[in-house]
Each structure stands twice: as C-alpha cells, then as structure tokens.
Design a protein around this nucleic acid. Structure first.
Lengths: 215, 215
DNA sequence: ATCGTTATGTGGATGGCGTACACTTTCGAT
DNA sequence: ATCGAAAGTGTACGCCATCCACATAACGAT
C-alpha cells in the first residue's frame, strides 16, 4: 500500500530554511482565499511541508500567526494605495492635484477591496485580545500605513487651501469611515450583489460626498 | 464522586418545549459576547440543556443557526433605530424634521454599535455561502429593516425639498457606508481605542459630512 | 577537527469542535 | 390502545489548537 500516513513531511534538509516566512506566506494565501477564519495553523504548516507543531517555534499561537498575516495584509493595502497615487497624472492646479490625491487614496482602497477581499477582511479583523495601538503600525513600501497615506492627502488639501485647517483634525476618521464602510458592505455585506460597474459608479459618488462634505 | 460525565442533560421532560427558540436565544447571547465566531453549536446546546446533536432537529448546520442569529441581530438593530426615531421631538420646520430623521437613523445605528458590538458584527458577518439578496429581509417591530428605515428617512428629505430627487437614487448606499464604516472601525478596527466622548463627537461630525455631502 | 549547546522539527496525546448514523423516548392522530 | 412521526440520545469520526517529551542538525567555542 501507499503509506496512508505520510506523517513525516519529506524535505531534503531537516531545517526548513525560513519556516517563519513560509508560514506567513501560506497564511497570506489562506487569508486571501477565505479571510481570517481560513488562516488555519495546520494547513499553513502542511503547505510549508512541515509538521503542525513546528509552527510553534516561530509563532506562539495561531493568533500570533494571524496577527502577522494581518500586518502583511495591511502593508499590501498600503502598497495598493501607493500605486494608485503613483499613477496620478499631475494636474497643473494645486487644488485639483490635492483633490486628485484624496480620490486616489479612496479608489486605491476600493480597488484593493475588490481585488483582495479576503486580505482586506483579514487586515481589519478583530485582534481577539491584544489591546493594540489606535492606528496600525505597519507600513507599505513608502514606510507609511494606509491611515498615514490618507492623512498626507488631507494635509495636501489644507495646503492647497481646499480644506479649512479647522476641519482638518479628525478628518481622516470621516473619510476613512466612508470608504471603509463601503468596502465592507461590498465585500461581504448586503451590497455584495451589486455589479462591478455599479460599484465603481457608487464608489465615485461616495468620494464626491466625502469631498463635498469634508470641505 | 459527583458524576464527571453527566452526559445526559437532566431535564424533567424528555421534550424540551421550544428548543429551536432556546438555541436561537443562546446563540444570540454568544454572539453578543463574542461576535459570529462565538456562536458555537455545542455551547448553545449546552446552555439549552440538551445534547449537541439535538440541535440538528431544528437547524441543518451551525451555519443555519448562525444565519438565524444574524437575522435576529439585524432585527435588534432595526428596533434600536426605531427607538431613536420614536424619541424624536418634532420640530416645526419640515426640512429640519427630515434632517433630524436622517440623523436619528445614524445615531441609532452608532448607539447600537457601541452598546452591542458583538451583535452588529454578527449581523454583518459574511454568510459563508448563501448567495442571499442584496438587502437583508428581516425586519424590526415596524416591519422595516435598517436599510428600509434609512430609505424612508431619505425619502423624507426629498419630500421636504432638502435632497434633490436626482440625488436620491443610491443615496442609501452612501449614507450607510459612512455610518457602517465608522461603526466597524470603532468596534474592532483601529478606532477601537477612542474614548466614548470622542466617538460621539466624531460621529456627529460624520453625520454632518453625510448631510452636507449628500444634499 | 571536535564537541557540547541550542535552535528547530518530530511524535504522540488531550480536549474541543462540527457532524453523520443508528437508536430510543415521547406525543398525537387514529 | 396502537402506531408513526418528531425530538433527543449515544457513539463515532475527522479536523482543529496546543502541550510535553524527544530527536536532530547547525553553530560557536575550544
């Protein structure tokens, strides 16, 4: 018979090389497909070609692995936003440019939500226990997290004279809430069944609302 | 010794009476405390004083029970919003009244989010598989679900001449996104650590933004 | 080069979970 | 009184996270 219980994963080297990273990658893949609940420790070790317990040499628990996946997912979101910002054609008018920046942050967020719903859900899933800081630490390639990218865009609006300075404080929360809420309702909420074009259209109107309501 | 394995739950009657409802209640209680993941079938049956498998006479799977809990949680949200609307002092000006209605829907939503975070998270958790309609069916005591209550408030704005009719279509999505997103970020997102007064203040500004951005 | 030390994986076990199948008890219609 | 369906129980399986003891390979001091 073929060995039904191939318990010991076959690997040329006893050492794995970089199991920690391999587990993170596997976890990200799982999260991509099924959100935070799909990040199953045993499955991650399976994919890394290693016995379940090996994971505990690198993460104290499933929650720690999940936390690492969360951070990575958040960083991926930051990268997506940065890409959106990078693809921005620079309009002459500073005010228009500042507005475009804010919109780019929003559309980057929404684009990511549609492209990687599992990762977005994971990034913002509850950390089960950890108190955690008010705002995520992890950063994208530019060293900024999504929240900071949004803040920068808002600063730009103030500099361009579009947003009155007295309305700047806490404005991140307002803009973020609108975009995040829409993303969530679209990903797994009641707006799930809207067609992609509908979603894009409403997304644009949402950004209109934010822009108008904020300034 | 006390019987370590009290397998057969002690009940005077072999029949339970209304196990279906008892399981729903237990599930709601679990969801209240820990969100959708806390709705554990075995624990629900335990609380109902019944063996795990008994649940399958009333729900085909854990997911079906969870779905029932979801509906109940959504109905609870609708009730909370209705209460907020009921407590509204009727201003003379129709326009002001319509605005107050919209605000009441928003504040009811946010109040519920703070009072029952577990239920709100459960109400909007992903239904795992079911396609489901675009908008929840279940209703509060007035027979309307939260989405419909919001729609009614927006209709009122149009009637009062505050909201241009051409902006009415899809306006629910915009308002809902903002409020829902804020609720989510506050419940288990990065805004978790804000103080309740801060939250209330920002919540009001959020509603300002929606009102201004929408009309 | 040798030899511990220690980091890293393995094996085996425990208890919780969802759920399938077969059995038993009770209720209500006949 | 009888019998069939409805509701609960028992047993079992496989999956999960995690604990403990053990094995092995890589590395640094000698």
């Amino acid at each position: 018979m073929s060995p039904t219980k191939a318990r010991a994963p076959k690997r040329s080297t006893y050492r794995h090389g970089d199991l920690r990273q391999a587990l993170l990658d596997a976890g990200l893949e799982l999260a991509r497909g099924g959100g935070p609940d799909a990040v199953v420790l045993r499955e991650a070790t399976r994919r890394a070609g290693v016995v379940p317990n090996a994971a505990y040499r690198h993460y104290a628990s499933r929650h720690e692995l999940l936390q690492a996946v969360r951070s990575a997912a958040l960083a991926a979101l930051a990268v997506a936003i940065e890409n959106e910002l990078a693809g921005l054609r620079r309009a002459g008018n500073p005010a228009a440019r500042a507005r475009a920046c804010l919109r780019a942050v929003g559309t980057g967020y929404l684009r990511f939500a549609q492209a990687e719903p599992g990762l977005l859900r994971t990034a913002f899933s509850v950390p089960d226990d950890l108190p955690g800081s008010a705002v995520p630490e992890k950063a994208g390639s530019s060293g900024l997290n999504p929240f900071q990218l949004l803040g920068a865009a808002l600063d730009g609006l103030v500099d361009a004279g579009v947003l009155p300075p007295e309305r700047r404080l806490g404005a991140e929360y307002l803009a973020w809430s609108a975009v995040h809420g829409f993303a969530m309702l679209v990903i797994d909420g009641p707006l799930r069944t809207l067609s992609p074009p509908q979603i894009r259209a409403i997304g644009q109107r949402l950004l209109d609302m934010v822009e108008k309501g904020l300034t």
